[in-house]
Amino acid sequence: MSEEDKALQDAQSSGQPVELLSARTEASDTWALPDGSFSVKRHGTAVRLWRDGAWVAADPTLQFTADGSVVPKASSVAVKFSGGGSGAMLSGVKDGRTLSLAWPKTLPKPTLSSNIATYSEILPGVDLQLKAEVEGFSQLLVVKTAAAAQNPELAKLQFAMSTVGLKVAEDVDTGTLVATDPAGQTVFTSPAPLMWDSSTLAGQLPAPAMQKFAAAASEPAPGDAFEPGVGAEDAQMDTSVSSDTLTITPDQALLTGAETTYPVFIDPSWAWGEWQHWTRVYKAYPKNSYWDAKGDVRVGYEEETGGSDRISRSFF
């Protein structure tokens, strides 16, 4: 009896779905059903990884290694973050190809919380956060005060960049950065970098709408600082890349504006260029690319933030 027939037989006799283990992949499960059919469940990202002859649960939780660096427990991309000091701030390795970025100054030892490493005060009033994903990594600068935002070192952010077996180029039409191997295959991508402040909807809406929003906001929300909050003011940032430097130019009007609410978050992120892809599009930024963007799927009109341009779509 084949494994498929055995799974169908067990499903029919038990009245419960039975997984066909030989068909399991990093991002899909196949199940025999009691009615004699099969069902395939596909996940948006890897939920398990094949390690040393067995499946292990994907887990981007960060931990220190013996050499002091910081790595996730189980991820598709071999991500390593700095444990403090000089050298690479972060590096990602996939299929023998490496992308590394370095902050121009010495980093303090980070504090770890789940899959986020926080490097405090890399500039006065500015923290750096590095986030591990199962299939990528993100970096976030947190500008905590208006005084911190005036630092001339925030006029342009320059990261030393090194690669092994990769070429990084910018799509000038969308702001997307793409790291490709010698065969032209995409290994890593970075959507157009975005920055946002901590504005909320308080005082922006009529009383009935504000009451509705306040009731919804009282419930715990998923996510973290790596995604703009409802009501946040945001702006795309200019990006340029050379053979050894990645330069990001924050929007000064948002960074230092009189109406800006702090902290301000400055976010470029990277993802592994897998065969599955998705993107968000915003009417507010019709020429921006958010290919393989991190964060929530968004569909429809964001009533709370107002404005006819607050329409989002997501494509897979």
Rank of each mutant, 00 (worst) to 15 (best):
residue 130 L to I: 09
residue 66 A to G: 11
residue 88 A to K: 13
residue 142 V to H: 05
residue 63 Q to H: 12
residue 158 Q to D: 13
residue 68 G to L: 05
residue 74 A to C: 11
residue 54 A to E: 09
residue 27 A to L: 04
residue 110 P to E: 12
residue 133 E to G: 15
residue 110 P to C: 07
residue 101 L to E: 08
residue 37 S to R: 12
residue 152 P to W: 11
residue 29 D to P: 00
residue 144 K to H: 14
residue 91 S to W: 10
residue 99 L to C: 04
residue 92 G to H: 01
residue 80 K to D: 00
residue 106 T to N: 11
residue 44 G to L: 13
residue 62 L to R: 00
residue 138 S to Y: 05
residue 133 E to F: 06
residue 65 T to V: 11
residue 79 V to A: 09
residue 74 A to Q: 13
residue 43 H to Y: 15
residue 89 M to E: 05
residue 43 H to A: 07
residue 92 G to N: 03
residue 93 V to F: 03
residue 120 S to I: 03
residue 43 H to P: 08
residue 52 D to T: 13
residue 85 G to W: 04
residue 89 M to I: 06
residue 83 G to S: 10
residue 132 A to Q: 07
residue 87 G to Q: 12
residue 148 A to V: 08
residue 80 K to H: 04
residue 64 F to D: 09
residue 58 A to S: 13
residue 73 K to Q: 14
residue 95 D to T: 02
residue 102 A to S: 15
residue 132 A to G: 07
residue 116 I to D: 01
residue 148 A to C: 06
residue 153 E to P: 01
residue 58 A to L: 01
residue 159 F to L: 15
residue 143 V to N: 07
residue 108 P to A: 02
residue 154 L to A: 09
residue 69 S to Q: 15
residue 131 K to L: 15
residue 145 T to R: 06
residue 62 L to V: 07
residue 98 T to A: 11
residue 125 G to V: 09
residue 135 E to N: 12
residue 97 R to L: 00
residue 36 G to M: 07
residue 143 V to E: 10
residue 80 K to G: 01
residue 114 S to M: 02
residue 153 E to R: 06
residue 157 L to Y: 08
residue 135 E to V: 10
residue 39 S to Q: 10
residue 73 K to H: 10
residue 76 S to D: 08
residue 129 Q to M: 11
residue 106 T to V: 15
residue 28 S to Q: 02
residue 74 A to F: 11
residue 41 K to P: 04
residue 60 P to D: 05
residue 80 K to C: 00
residue 128 L to T: 06
residue 87 G to R: 14
residue 61 T to L: 00
residue 85 G to I: 11
residue 44 G to F: 12
residue 125 G to W: 11
residue 110 P to L: 10
residue 155 A to Q: 11
residue 147 A to S: 13
residue 112 L to F: 09
residue 53 G to C: 05
residue 127 D to K: 06
residue 38 F to R: 11
residue 53 G to Y: 05
residue 44 G to Q: 14
residue 120 S to M: 04
residue 100 S to C: 03
residue 74 A to M: 08
residue 108 P to V: 06
residue 148 A to W: 14
residue 119 Y to A: 12
residue 94 K to E: 07
residue 127 D to Q: 04
residue 56 V to E: 12
residue 97 R to H: 15
residue 56 V to A: 05
residue 94 K to V: 06
residue 79 V to K: 07
residue 32 A to F: 00
residue 94 K to W: 14
residue 64 F to S: 14
residue 154 L to T: 03
